[in-house]
Nucleic acid binder design. Structure first.
Lengths: 348, 348
DNA sequence: CTGAAAGCGCTAACAA
DNA sequence: TTGTTAGCGCTTTCAG
């Protein structure tokens, strides 16, 4: 038997140390007292033989794996990848490993992924970003492992959600525009059935409008109710049409436009430019997200930065808290955002 | 016993189907003949009971897990994340799962990660991007699982490397500049000890120079030999100094500069601008990598696009080939790159 | 074509 | 303070 070629197991260690496997197991786990002397001997032998416990066998026995499942819609996207980095950072320190799955915005795939990694005895599931429907989770989650949502909605409000305060963020940036002297401020965004954030962002705008002593005016709304594109691209056409209908003689009834996200904001800038408007001289534009492009676009975009890494870290911490049966208060889960001032807005 | 709360196992299925666990196992794996009738019955029951085999138990027995380890320096980076997406795409189709680890450019962490996931009985390891030293792998890889490198060097040339032809790519883009009428073309890049690609890219440049009937002129080289920054940032200072010393009266002895990567190219553009040069009117600049910023920079960068997703997919395929003991020819592993023409170069 | 049973490496209940 | 042993869920050898 060529033992040199294969990793030693707990039995080997026990034999060499002249103790039982139980003692070795407990020396490692610390779950029951082992005399200093024996412990020393065991650890020495462990080191000499380069032993590390077999994670798979341990998982099978304990029905715990030290692995956390992460499901993300895509990887090659600054939002998700940075959140995941945050998760990894915190969880690695606690000794967990990550199994990362990509759902490609497909709920069926997501479900399959969860099924599969569930049988790995993952100790928790963190869902990053994306969509709405997650009722399938309970159906699969027979072992009742903790589930945490990172920057993801849950209409049923069943799982802890680590996110940002969408309403407040939009409210803040609208306030910022009012403070800059704008009197009439419009809003452009999706208003899709069932999308909670769509409603929240609009509410943030409305809140600020009222707070600043104005009346909410529906004609200042460029709200797209179609529910096609989850990522929020392709608002360009929609705004272009709006401008053609409402922007006669290069006049609009607002001097600033709050956009629900950076994609919409960039589309808005481009559509405005094409229709002869100047940003920010004629119209100030704000975005939401602080995507990479927002910095390099011309003009660069005033927007709201989302603390992505922090969201990841916090998600991990929430998970740990659940594991340790510490209770979490909802108020801890909403992170502050920050306004990034660039060139798409101006003081009036 | 409340079986409704827990996942059924193979024994449960066997009992309900009135067959042995062996038969269930073989029905699933197809490794030995099971009568159509029995198979049908078994699969029906599997479906009804929502059974899926326990991956952990299977791994323990088979010393295979259906899991592939991926180690990447960072996640939030278009290069790595897109390669990983490619890997995931191909491997998911083959039924593999991915455990993704982040090494933060730290070899010790990388080693630890490998150790840990090795005990998960991962079936293979794909190392994405980054650094040089990988001799530690054999030391850990007692089970001798296949190792594939994606866009990563290996001085020992021990493992299959899926990458691009750096030399040819740089040679091509230098050719492109010659064809555009440039007679004197410079080169800016790192030349760090032990970095194979540094040498390869420079060789590509030299190859093109000679091919185009010129003599290699050392004074056209802006080569940084320090070995600080692995990512290739902060060339700005270096080039700035060079320009101050060699660019009197806004005259340089070249009209085009081939840069080893996009970061250097962007630094070069900025340094040139600051020193009173116009890009591309005075000097044409090319990069390598086609990073997001290269498109939005002013002027936008003519550069070489790397087929990142393809690299990922191919890495996965190579892994599968190794598993299936198909031999791989080295020539299959080098992917073509593509020149992306933008505004930082001009025809003379 | 099918089954019984050993055993993968570990943990923990029970026993001393 | 330590040891014996059952068993986690599965695959596979050996035996029909």
């Amino acid at each position: 038997m060529d033992r040199s070629k294969i990793n030693p197991n707990i039995k080997d260690i026990a034999k060499i140390a002249n103790v039982s496997v139980t003692t070795v197991s407990h020396a490692i786990s610390g779950k029951r007292h082992v005399s200093e002397k024996t412990k020393e001997k065991i650890f020495k032998i462990i080191k000499e033989n380069d032993y590390s416990p077999n994670v798979v066998a341990r998982s099978l026995k304990k029905k715990e794996s030290g692995i956390i499942g992460v499901i993300t819609p895509v990887l090659n996207n600054e939002f998700y990848s940075e959140i995941i980095e945050g998760i990894e950072e915190s969880l690695r320190l606690k000794g967990y490993m990550l199994v990362i799955n990509i759902s490609h915005f497909n709920i069926t795939k997501e479900k399959e992924h969860f099924r599969k990694i569930d049988s790995l005895f993952i100790d928790g599931l963190i869902l990053v970003g994306g969509f709405t429907e997650i009722s399938y989770i309970d159906e699969i989650n027979k072992r009742n492992i903790p589930v945490v949502l990172a920057l993801r909605e849950d209409p049923q409000n069943k799982y802890p959600i680590v996110s940002i305060d969408f309403k407040k963020s939009i409210s803040n940036i609208t306030d910022f525009l009012f403070k800059s002297g704008h009197e009439n401020i419009g809003y452009a965004g999706w208003l899709r059935e069932g999308k909670i954030t769509d409603r929240k962002t609009l509410d943030g705008y409305i809140e600020s409008v009222k707070k600043n002593g104005k009346k909410f005016n529906k004609s200042l709304l460029i709200a797209h109710t179609a529910s096609e594109d989850d990522q929020g691209h392709n608002f360009y056409q929609f705004i272009d049409t709006y401008l053609k209908q409402n922007g006669n003689n290069r006049k609009l009834n607002f001097t600033a436009l709050v956009c629900q996200n950076d994609y919409i904001a960039i589309d808005a800038i481009n559509a405005l430019k094409k229709n002869g408007f100047n940003v920010p001289n004629d119209i100030s534009i704000t975005g939401f997200g602080n995507i990479a492009k927002s910095r390099y676009h011309n003009p660069s975009l005033t927007t709201i930065a989302i603390p992505r890494k922090k969201i990841g870290r916090l998600s991990a911490e929430v998970f740990i808290k659940i594991i340790n049966k510490n209770n979490i208060s909802d108020s801890d889960l909403l992170l502050e955002t920050e306004i990034i001032q660039r060139d798409s807005t101006r003081q009036l």
